[in-house]
Each structure stands twice: as C-alpha cells, then as structure tokens.
Design a protein around this nucleic acid. Structure first.
Lengths: 211, 211, 211, 211
DNA sequence: GATTAATCGAGACGGTACGTCATGTCTTAGC
DNA sequence: GCTAAGACATGACGTACCGTCTCGATTAATC
C-alpha cells in the first residue's frame, strides 16, 4: 500500500481487532492537521500551505505530519475530501438530458468557490507528483465520473441516448470543458456557461447531417 | 507592460528607432537561457528547471535571468514558445467537421510529447502565478482558440453549422476534453480518443430529439 | 539576551537543570564551525571568512550557522575566544612598574601574531556592528583591562603609584598606544616598543616639574 | 604611482604643461562624487557608501567612479580629506605641556563628530585594504603626528622636555589613548578625558621615583 | 570644419555572498 | 509507540554590489 493511500484510510476501522501496542494515534492531532490545512488553503492560498505552517497552526510537530502523510499535497487532499463527501448529489428527474444539465450545473457552481480552487491546486500539484494525481483520480474524479456515467447509462436504457455512446469519451465531453475553464481561466465558470455547454453538447454543435 | 510580457518581445524590432542608452542586451545570453530552460525541461522535468540550474547551464549569472524574467515559469514559457511558433497549422479540407477533426487530432498528437508536458506544467504553475496564467492564455491558448474559431465561422458561413452557435462555448467543447485528459491523465491522449471525441461532439452524444 | 551573547554561552552549564525539549544542539557542529572560522581566518584572512565558506569547511549547513550566530563576525569572535582564554596571564614581581612592563610586553608580543590580526579585524568589524563591538568589549577588552587595573591598584596600595590615579584613564594610557599601532600600523609592535612605551609613560614624557 | 595615490592628486596642477588630447576630466563629476560620498557617510553610515549609491546620488555612472578611484574606501577618504584640510590647527602658547593639552583637546573634540566616525571607518577598512591604510597614514595621520612632534621638539629645545625623548613613542603615547577610545568605544571621548589624559601622561602615572 | 581621442551617461554582464525559507530526516524526553 | 519540540543537511530562493564591459553622445584640441 502506498503512503498516499495509507493516509487515506478511515481512522476508525469497523472491526478493530487486537489494538497494537504503544501509544495510539492521536485523533485530535489528525483532525487539527486536516483543519489547519483547510484553513490555510482557504485563507492564504495553496502556496501558504506548507507543512511547517500546518504543523504550527495545528499545534503539532512536523514529524507527526510526515508520519502520516507523505507531503503537503496529500494532507491538503485529505483535508479537502473530509469536507466534501458527496457534496454534489445525484439528480433524478427521469430525463437524462435534464439530469446531466443539473449535474453539470452543480459542479460548475461548486467550482466557483473553495472546491474549485482546491481541485485546481491539486491537479496542478499532481503534474509533478504522480502519487497525488493517482489519489485525486481515484478519490475525487472517479466518483464524479461514475455518477455521470450512471446518468448516461440510464439515458441509454430509456432510449434517450444512443447505444453507440462511448461512456468514457462522453463523460470527458461533459466534464472536460468545465475543468478546462477552471484551470485555464479564460472565461467565467457560471450557470450560463453550464447551460450553454449542455445545450451545445446535446445539439452536436448544431451540425447538419454531413450527408 | 508587465515583466512577463516585456521579456517576450521580439528581440529584433522592425523599425529599431533610436537605440536606448547603455550596453545593449546580450542576444547570446537571451538565447542561451531559453535553450537551457528547454533542455532542462526536456531532460529532467519541470522540477529541475530552477533559475540556478538555468543560469549555470547557460553560462549566465542568476542576476541576468532575473533581470529579464520574473521567475522560472516565465523563462520556461518563453523557451517553449520560441520552439512552437505555428507548429499546429491550419487544415483546410473545405468541410468544417473534417477540418476540426484534423485540428483536434494534431493538437492531441502534439500533446502526447514535449508540448503536452510543457503546457501541462505551465497551466499548473499558472494556478499560483496569475501573470503566468495570463501570459499563457494570451500567447498560447488564444492563438489556438482563434484558429478553431475561424474554422467554426467558416462552417457557419457554409451552412454546415448552426448560426446559433456560441463560438466561445463551442471552442471550449472542442478543446476542453483534450486539456482535461492532458491534465488529469485518467485515459490516454491518442488519435482514437481524438476521433471518438469529434464523433461524439458532432453527434450531440447521440441524443434523440427531446421533443 | 542578545544573539551574540547567547551563542557565546558555555556549552556545558554547571547545573544543567531540566534539559529543554527537542533535539539538543549538536556539539560536534558547534565545534566544527568555530574551528573552521579559525582556520579560515588564519589561512586566508578575514575577507575569506564568509558564512558560506565556514559552513562548507565545517560540513555544516548555512542555516545551522545562522541559527546560532547572527553574522560571521560573531562566529569569528567565538572562535577566537575559544582559543585564547587567559593566554595573557598575570605577572607578579611585587613591583607595579615591572608588572606593568611585563604585562604590556606580553600583550605586544601576542599582538604580533594571530591574536593581533584577529583583534584588529574584530575591532574593525565592530565599527559597523554595535553588538559585536559590545561583545568584544565585554568578553575580551574588559578582561585585560581588569588585569591592568588590578596591577595598578596593588601599586597604589604599596605606595608605588599616586593615590590620585584615575584608573580608567591610566589603563587607556597603557593600552592605547599598543592598540594604536596595531590598528594603524605606522610602526612595528615589538618588545623594544613595549619597553620604550613603559619607560616614557612612567617618566611622564620626561617632563620637568612645570613649577 | 598607485591608483589610490593617483586619485588623490590635486585636480589642478600648477604647471599644466601640454594638456593631453581627448575630452578632459569632468570637474563637476569629481566634485559630485566626493560630495555624494560625504553625504552618504554622514547620513547612513559607512555601510551605505556603496559605489552604486555614490554613482546614483552624484548623477554619475559607476564607470566614472571606477575610472578615478580603485574602490569605495578611496573615494571616502578623498571626500573626507577634501573637507578637513588643517581643521586642527597648531596651538602656540609657548609652553609644550599647554600646547599639547590644547592639541589633544582639539583632536578629541573633532573625534566626537563626523571626523571621528570617518576616521574610525577608514581605519577599519584599512585592516583589509593595505593601500587604503597606507594612504590614510600618509595623508591624515602623518600630518597630525608631524604637528605633535613639532610641539614636542620645541619643548625639548626650550628645556621643558627631556632630550632623551623618543619622539615616535612619545607621539604614540599622546595619540594612542584617543584612537583607542575612538575605535573601541568603552568610554566617552570628551574634554574631561582629554585633560585627564594629558595630566596622567605628564605626571608619569604619578610614579614615585623607583629608586 | 573634420578628425581624433578620451570622457561621460547609461546600463547589461558574470560573479559572489548574502540571509531566508521549506524540505524531509533526525534525536531527545515525556506521556 | 506515539508525541512535541526543535536541530540538522540540503538546496533554491531573490537581492545587493562588486568590478568589468559595451554602447552612443559629448567635448576639446589638432589637423
């Protein structure tokens, strides 16, 4: 098990078994660290989230941080995930197009605030830290993608969408433009954009039959 | 004019006018710095591109680097742009859908190598350096976007695409998924993806008429 | 307590008391730094004693030097003092004039070598660093001055010297000319000078009674 | 001729001879440089007197400074000497002891202000720059010493002082303590000190006849 | 009046060292 | 066996001056 993943474990397992010897891990320290990371990220941006600052603000030693997380990005991600569990719930209108429009809208709105800043920072850090990128994919992205895929699958079942759809590619089409604006910042991420996006995607960019 | 942009000026102006006083800037040093940045990026990745390393490899003092660029990312961007001028030229088949498919394919292929790694690194750095992000938008992205927009406009003129198209949003739909895969890395960036992408986009995800 | 003074503390206190928390200071590093400073000073002169050079020669990081000393001059002073503790001991012939002549001679001889060069360098640095000047006064000069004062006091007690003597001024008369030659270098610092000095001082420059 | 000395030459020679070809040296620049050095020294201390700062304040290029002076200390000394020519004139009361007392008093008073700070700074710099030390000796110290020697010689001629006096040593006795306090700063440099000094020196530290 | 030659300003250059910061590792004592 | 405290080696940061250099412009004296 990699360090990034180990750190991610739920702190309290369901069937504890024979407690290991020695002083048990401090739950207080763990929480203080994650909270400090969150506050720093919110208050001063990713650059200010140093392990040093986290430790000081959490009233914890650096060694304690490093014992449980491999680097600052892992801490930030844990801190981030500890606050967003299923913050973007699943819409069910019965119509795939509408469900997707709503889903995209919620993500867009979420990306307008703290969540967007954090996700952008994590993706950025992931460029130089493969483990972090992997963790982000498995713990954040794949959850959202699974939701979108589920909506699409329901749409196909109901005959609203073509059976030829490549689900992976389709999900990229839905999410790609949103992440693109998030990361590149060339235009605002708002509800108008989200709606226009859904329209254009489902309209096939208004392409007439090529025949 | 900001420092990032100033550094970017073409070294030789068309109508030089009255040369400014003082020792002129060393063209040799400028080139050596950009080349060193490129080589380091290629050889050892973005993390290895420190100002210190650039200066040493270029046989230049750190002060000279800092005199002309505000930070390493700006150097990397200049170095990058000095090698890619119109590396992704404009296709003209006479059919918008085909032009776009080709355009997307070329970008996808370019992103599979050095260019992709560099663009990803620059976008990542841009998350914490607004000036760099702005420079990347104005000097790399907007050029590509303008090309895509031009293709779309031609398609509208020829009646191949709907007149209702919001060009900005449409360009986001085309580019977004590619940048998304580039930055998130959840699936490969290859010709198959590029083609599938074009198909799905123009097919409107296979949506039946919602009526 | 000022940094300069703190750094100067004896490493081993007599009654240690409750050891402070955290990793203890590395005695090995402390010694290596002082030795490196001494060697550099001896070998290449004060100008070569940069913090960078000290750190490298001592196999220590710059940060460790800066953690304990505010600047290179403070290191040099500590290094210097660690080698000279009571190197100019107290003479006791029973005659004030003779004791003083010997005391001056020993100082003059000491100033002819390493000690003289170092003291001169430290006084010079002290011109721009008040803390260093203060440290030099309290840790080097006042020790020597106290010795001279003691000799003079004994001489007064024995009736060899006038009771009207202003001890501070008298000590300045004894030491002043030696430091003057040390720092200005207009004439050699040797035993002949030292003896002639003592003679002239006690002879009152050969002044006839002004009456 | 050394650079330090060359720079020191009087700007206008008495018998100009065949003026050399080319643009003559700018008297305006020379003066502005010396004045800038003086002002900086007065206003912000020796550390602030960098060649860069002098050049900027004087509205002159660094190259012009370096063309005429080898380093900042030489500039400072020239600037200093250009303001103090025989500022401590010769007293003539007809009595050696009194002349000397007055002479010492004037020097002590002068050392209480700008002159003292400058001389101290120059002596300090002289520790690492032999040329500067030599220039200071020949252009400042030897002038004052000659004055003192002359007073002493007159005193000997008049029978007020012993014929056995070693003039060099005697001058060291007079000046040494003053420079000592100037450079070490352990006690104030004022009229009281100066007078007490003269008393103690002429009284031979109150020594009873050793016989 | 043109030529020659040294000076001047401006400011870029290769260097060196500065003092700071965060990294991730370690060493200790205490709980 | 965790924890806090904090020292440690490492390495890059961005800054400040150093003393040198390369320009075009200026200023006389000479041709």
């Amino acid at each position: 098990m990699r360090a990034v993943e180990r750190a991610v474990e739920q702190p309290a397992e369901n069937h504890p078994g024979p407690r290991p010897p020695g002083r048990p891990r401090s739950e207080r320290a763990r929480r203080a660290i994650l909270q400090a990371a969150n506050e720093l990220l919110e208050g001063e941006g990713f650059a200010a989230v140093t392990v040093e600052a986290i430790a000081e603000r959490a009233g914890v030693s650096k060694a304690t941080v490093y014992r449980w997380w491999p680097n600052r990005a892992a801490v930030v991600m844990d801190g981030f995930l500890s606050t967003v569990s299923s913050e973007v719930p699943f819409p069910h209108t019965g119509h795939a197009r509408e469900d997707i429009r709503l889903h995209m809208r919620r993500l867009t709105e979420a990306f307008g605030g703290r969540i967007g800043r954090t996700v952008a920072a994590l993706i950025a850090e992931g460029q130089t830290e493969p483990e972090l990128a992997e963790a982000l994919r498995s713990r954040w992205l794949s959850v959202r993608r699974a939701e979108a895929r589920e909506i699409l699958e329901l749409g196909i079942e109901r005959g609203e969408l073509s059976e030829d759809l490549d689900l992976e590619v389709a999900v990229d089409v839905l999410y790609g433009p949103i992440y693109y604006r998030l990361l590149v910042g060339h235009a605002p991420l708002d509800g108008d954009f989200s709606d226009a996006l859904a329209d254009h995607i489902f309209a096939g960019l208004g392409a007439r039959d090529p025949a």
